[in-house]
Design a protein around this nucleic acid. Structure first.
Length: 476
RNA sequence: GGCGGCGUACCCAAGUGGUAAGGGAGCAGUCUGCAAAACUGCGAUUCAGCGGUUCGAUCCCGCUCGCCGCCUCCA
């Protein structure tokens, strides 16, 4: 039984989708005018994890995540950089895709772009006009907040209570300060589309309503996004969508917490942000390893809590993952002749699976779920210090991969994981050659030469482990 | 001014009305020719502070302090 914290009710609720077994899920994506930062990465990873976990629990999940490819910032940037706005957005969409794949974020079923849904948006606008929820002024169209009785139910504000310090944009054309623009008349030279109210472009909020309703239906099971979108964006989406359809727009609102730097929200305006690409550039591990470390870092905090980004935090995540991969390597090297433990192993695995599900069912408590995997790792090392049979080793490995799937972790083949911090390249053949030489030295009790070789290899990032059976394992 | 959140060991981070998971780092031990890995032990008499409710509170209530977020584009 999955429970989800619903921002609308501000409590955990038992998750029951509209249609049993099916989940329609919409997540606000990014505005493509610049590089994405770690905050965007968090949101993407969190909702990817949620979709993965619901699938793990047997739901048929359809996930839609949009690209906002037309807005003020895009127009501004395209003018500054003297690049056609369409080329600008295309460039960043491609970059986003590349980064998502490094983070092991699955591609959503549909990734609609705002500019591909103009007719659908205009249809919603027209509907809102017809019902009196919208009014046109000088080529703009505004939503009339006063006409929508439950306006403010998500963000907990009421229309009368907006006092003098509310920083609402002054606009003579609006009937109420909180009225928001659905359609914006275009200035000469700006990208524009035809509409019954003249040439213009859509306001920000309308795209999500139109795309979500068209692709997933008028009532969504889950709608996600960063907590900064709660107001006004999601509040406005509710008003538009419910005003238009007369049906509840979203059953479960889910919001992820921020990535912070020195306790402050990572944001463009504060200038304290790290782009995803910059993190990958800075860290010398293979990209896939960095991606998994970053993902582990994100998932090691509960998704609604703020998470503090730092180089050290990524290092710690990597260290934790190393422990798992060392175990995986041992599983791979398990010996076929080993006597099997029988039921004990499967009992241990079952117990962990149960605890894992219990944690994840409780509003996707990934830190707790990961802790369970560490407990298992610990128990396996303790109970099976004598080693596992190759069949058992494969079983354990498969088990970690199985539970790693909803988290999107443990995806990297053991041989490709990077243990050492040393980035020097050395071929496997050379490593084997050195180890062979060292074996001979050890046999002759030439410890001096043996240690020299160990040291040499260590400098090249190869870590040696002499096994009780006389062989030597290595990793790099 | 309105609304909301947070404060758990050196760092990260779960959690429950019944006496503090897990990870990282550290130290010690076992094992090892030496290592590595692994395991074992040590590490918050205590959960920002002060009151209250309770047989009992880190967890419930109130107040105080500190930090942060939204109210403007924002994941």
């Amino acid at each position: 039984m999955v429970k989800i914290f619903n921002s609308l009710s501000r409590q955990k609720e038992v998750f029951k989708p509209l249609i049993p077994g099916k989940v329609n899920m919409y997540v606000c994506g990014v505005t493509v005018y610049d590089h994405s930062h770690i905050g965007h990465a968090r949101s993407a990873v969190v909702f990817d994890m949620i979709a993965r976990y619901l699938r793990f629990r047997g739901y048929d999940v359809k996930l839609v995540k949009n690209f906002t490819d037309i807005d003020d910032k895009i127009i501004k940037r395209s003018n500054e950089d003297k690049i056609f706005w369409k080329d600008l957005t295309e460039k960043y969409i491609q970059e986003y895709h590349r980064e998502m794949s490094l983070l092991n974020v699955l591609t959503p079923a549909v990734e609609p772009k705002a500019t591909e849904y103009l007719p659908e948006m205009i249809k919603v606008l027209q509907g809102l006009m017809d019902k009196g929820f919208a009014y046109a002024k000088e080529g703009d169209v505004y939503f009339r907040v006063g006409a929508f009785a439950s306006y403010g139910k998500l963000s907990g504000r009421d229309l009368s209570g907006e006092d003098s310090r509310a920083r609402v944009e002054a606009n003579e054309l609006k009937e109420h300060p909180l009225d928001f623009v659905l359609w914006k008349a275009s200035k000469p030279g700006e990208p524009s589309w035809d509409s019954p109210w003249g040439k213009g472009r859509p306001g920000w909020h309308i795209e999500c309503s139109a795309m979500a309703m068209n692709l997933l239906g008028e009532t969504l099971d889950i709608h996600g996004g960063g907590e900064d979108l709660l107001f006004p964006h999601h509040e406005n989406e509710i008003a538009q969508s419910e005003g238009f359809s007369g049906k509840p727009f979203v059953r479960y609102w889910v919001h992820n917490g921020f990535v912070t730097v020195n306790q402050e929200k990572m944001s463009k305006s504060l200038g304290n942000f790290f782009t995803i690409r910059e993190v990958f550039q800075k860290i010398a591990w293979p990209e896939a390893v960095t991606g998994e470390a970053l993902r582990y870092f994100i998932l090691s905090t509960y998704y609604r809590q703020p998470v503090q980004f730092s180089d050290q935090a990524i290092d710690e995540a990597k260290n934790s993952l190393d422990r798992f991969y060392i175990l995986f390597q041992k599983c791979e090297q398990a010996s076929g002749s080993r006597k099997e433990a029988g039921d004990k192993l499967s009992q241990i695995l079952d117990k962990t699976r149960q605890a894992f599900i219990e944690a994840m069912d409780d509003d996707f408590n990934t830190p707790e779920a990961i802790a369970q995997l560490h407990l298992l790792r610990n128990e396996l090392n303790r109970e099976f210090s004598g080693g596992l049979s190759s069949r058992e080793g494969a079983g354990v490995l498969a088990f970690f991969k199985e539970l790693g799937e909803p988290l999107g972790l443990f995806k990297i083949p053991e041989k490709e994981w990077k243990f050492s911090r040393v980035m020097e390249e050395i071929s496997n053949e050379d490593v084997e050659r050195f180890i062979h030489e060292r074996q001979a030295a050890r046999k002759a009790k030439d410890w001096k030469r043996s240690d020299e070789i160990r040291k040499e290899l260590a400098e090249k990032g190869v870590i040696l482990e002499d096994r009780p059976d006389g062989g030597t394992s290595w990793r790099k």
